[in-house]
Amino acid sequence: MNSADVLADAFGRVQETVHEAVKGLTVDQLAARLDDKANSVAWLVWHLTRVQDDHVSEVAAAEEVWTEQGWYERFELPFPAAATGYGHRAKDVAALRVPPTLLLGYYDAVHERTIDYVRGLRDADLAAVVDEAWTPPVTLGVRLVSVISDDLQHAGQAAFIRGVLRRR
């Protein structure tokens, strides 16, 4: 197993967790929040997908799936196309009401792009510096692991909310 295989496996685990968190939920359940300031399952999955799309597209020197494949228009959100959820407030979270098929469709399109990208990486590629704004500078390997970590945290939050909603 090489680094590309490990990364693909990790992103595959994110996909499994995302699908489990969303599967069988209605639009209302996806948009439900545990309190007025909490995130919803829909927002968490949209946000983790937007961040993955943004970060992987940047290192792959490709247009984001969000705009390239027309997902921005399909979601019809009151945010700019470049929005990823950073800095969103409660009203922004509440604005995200989408069917599970749309949410998972976008997630799966980003996942496919991500897997295609990481499968083409060689171990030596992971040492390339992709962001010099940090000390130490961020390498491709660190950026991808960071995306996986962030994705799993948000997917876990979505799974927790799902559990609470299903027990109600």
Results as ranks from 00 to 15, higher is better:
residue 33 R to I: 01
residue 20 E to P: 02
residue 47 H to C: 06
residue 115 I to F: 11
residue 12 G to C: 08
residue 113 R to G: 04
residue 36 D to H: 14
residue 47 H to Y: 11
residue 109 A to I: 08
residue 82 A to N: 13
residue 153 Q to N: 06
residue 25 L to G: 03
residue 104 L to D: 04
residue 48 L to I: 05
residue 130 V to I: 13
residue 46 W to Y: 02
residue 95 A to W: 09
residue 118 V to C: 01
residue 114 T to L: 09
residue 28 D to K: 15
residue 16 E to Y: 05
residue 137 P to K: 11
residue 25 L to Y: 05
residue 69 Q to F: 12
residue 94 A to F: 07
residue 107 Y to K: 00
residue 96 L to G: 04
residue 40 S to Y: 01
residue 54 D to M: 15
residue 151 D to A: 11
residue 84 T to V: 15
residue 138 V to Y: 07
residue 15 Q to E: 09
residue 16 E to P: 00
residue 46 W to I: 00
residue 127 A to E: 14
residue 125 D to Q: 12
residue 163 G to I: 07
residue 26 T to Y: 15
residue 14 V to G: 00
residue 6 V to T: 12
residue 137 P to E: 08
residue 80 P to A: 15
residue 51 V to W: 00
residue 130 V to R: 04
residue 31 A to H: 06
residue 127 A to L: 13
residue 139 T to A: 12
residue 122 R to E: 14
residue 1 M to R: 10
residue 50 R to V: 00
residue 158 A to Q: 01
residue 81 A to Q: 11
residue 157 Q to C: 05
residue 69 Q to V: 01
residue 87 G to K: 10
residue 46 W to C: 01
residue 28 D to V: 10
residue 43 W to Y: 14
residue 91 K to P: 05
residue 92 D to A: 10
residue 38 A to T: 04
residue 122 R to C: 14
residue 28 D to M: 10
residue 29 Q to Y: 07
residue 53 D to S: 09
residue 103 L to S: 05
residue 105 G to R: 06
residue 108 D to F: 03
residue 118 V to K: 01
residue 139 T to I: 08
residue 63 E to P: 01
residue 111 H to F: 06
residue 161 I to V: 14
residue 112 E to C: 05
residue 10 A to R: 02
residue 103 L to H: 06
residue 83 A to K: 06
residue 121 L to W: 06
residue 141 G to S: 12
residue 7 L to H: 01
residue 155 A to N: 03
residue 41 V to W: 03
residue 15 Q to V: 03
residue 56 V to D: 03
residue 30 L to C: 09
residue 89 R to T: 09
residue 13 R to D: 08
residue 50 R to G: 01
residue 80 P to V: 15
residue 22 V to Y: 00
residue 128 A to M: 10
residue 148 I to W: 05
residue 19 H to Q: 08
residue 13 R to P: 01
residue 143 R to C: 14
residue 51 V to S: 02
residue 78 P to L: 13
residue 159 A to D: 03
residue 88 H to A: 10
residue 142 V to P: 00
residue 11 F to P: 01
residue 35 D to F: 11
residue 116 D to N: 13
residue 21 A to H: 00
residue 114 T to V: 10
residue 156 G to D: 06
residue 77 L to P: 06
